[in-house]
């Protein structure tokens, strides 16, 4: 778009500011995304509750949360589709409320459903999308060619999008989102509807993107499998950020192992385990859940103490699902049960 040298010397005026002036150059150290007290309400329902979050440049940041947890709302706010009802959100140092147009030309947005016209050919979709970003001519053709090759789509360029598989469509859509060389790419549930092979393939592409330069990726997901692959995760539940950190660090918060015990009267058993062994056993989904180091040595003791009452015992390394349960006190729901 514009650079600082073309910006008018006079201070920007309201109204014209969005169009004519170049935003102040962003310091290299500014976070790619930064929110402060970000709040959004749909009528009475609070979708985002005073969210403070910073995504650093150059990382793959995952927003993990159940459906209805607020991540789609956050995604819409950051992609400039929706103005938040409270607090601030800055993308690449620019305010989403005031500088929407400047943000739009510097971010790439890949939605859960591909933003492609299925009745058009792959190449047409990319060309038209390029035009929307102000790209044209030989420069655009060169970029399209590059992306088609990078995503191994060159031989499908003149196929109608509707003839492509879900995985290929997703790749075309990703290419569309990258045409204008965005500094930040927002992706909403990028692996939805993909088979395992296409998922692995997509993640390879995403990691290659991050490795290539200073591109930042922000990915929303409700899949643990995807979340594991992010550099850092923000865990969202009921509009609040309940956890933040690298997947390994988050799992490290849980002391050692997770033991899940099936029984007929979980509340009673929980209380008795607490009396006997201490710690913080909890009832989650009708089962008693215990976090403690050295799980394998602990289980025989547990069985000996309550052999008559225990029907099943499961020992596991903590997963992100356990992290979520640990942080929120309830199970990670993949269905929007609150709605």
């Amino acid at each position: 778009m514009t650079d600082a040298s073309t910006a008018p010397a006079t201070p920007p005026q309201a109204g014209a500011a969005q169009v004519a002036t170049a935003p102040a150059p962003t310091p290299a150290t500014a976070p790619a995304v930064e929110t402060a007290g970000l709040t959004h309400r749909y009528g009475e329902r609070v979708a985002l509750a005073a969210l403070d979050l910073a995504v650093q440049c150059g990382e793959i940041f995952g927003l993990l949360g159940p459906n209805g947890g607020g991540k789609t709302t956050l995604f819409r706010v950051l992609s400039t589709l929706m103005a938040p009802t409270g607090g601030t959100a800055r993308v690449l140092g620019l305010d989403v409320g005031k500088d929407a147009r400047a943000i739009r030309s510097r971010i790439g947005v890949v939605f859960q459903t591909p933003s492609l016209d299925k009745k058009l050919k792959v190449i047409e979709n990319l060309r038209y999308a390029g035009h929307l970003y102000g790209l044209a001519g030989a420069d655009l053709d060169r970029r399209i060619q590059e992306l088609l090759e990078r995503f191994r789509l060159a031989d499908r360029a003149s196929d109608l999008v509707e003839k492509l598989s879900g995985g290929l469509q997703r790749r075309v859509d990703l290419a569309r989102g990258l045409l204008h060389g965005p500094e930040l790419v927002l992706m909403d549930e990028p692996t939805t509807g993909l088979d395992p092979g296409a998922r692995i393939d997509l993640w390879e592409h995403l990691r290659a993107l991050r490795a290539g330069g200073k591109m930042t990726l922000l990915v929303t997901t409700h899949l643990m499998e995807d979340a594991e692959k992010c550099d850092r995760l923000g865990i969202l539940d009921q509009g609040k950020l309940v956890g933040l950190g690298a997947p390994e660090a988050l799992k490290g918060q849980i002391g050692g192992d997770v033991i899940t015990v099936g029984t007929a009267a979980p509340e009673q058993l929980r209380d008795r385990i607490r009396e006997r062994f201490g710690g913080e056993p909890a009832v989650v989904d009708g089962k008693v859940r215990i976090e403690r180091p050295g799980g394998a040595r602990f289980i025989p003791e547990l069985l000996e103490a309550f052999s008559g009452e225990i029907s099943t015992v499961m020992l596991g390394k903590p997963t992100l699902e356990d992290v979520f349960t640990h942080l929120t006190g309830h199970r990670f729901r993949t269905e929007d049960e609150a709605a």
């Binding site: 778009m1 739009r104 030309s105 947005v109 591909p114 492609l116 102000g134």
Partner: peptide, 20 residues
């Protein structure tokens, strides 16, 4: 259909003027 199938959202997040 554009709204339902997703094409429109891609246009809305692009810097293309709404007038276009």
């Amino acid at each position: 259909e554009d709204r339902k199938e997703g094409f429109l959202q891609g246009v809305l997040v692009s810097p293309a003027p709404r007038l276009a």
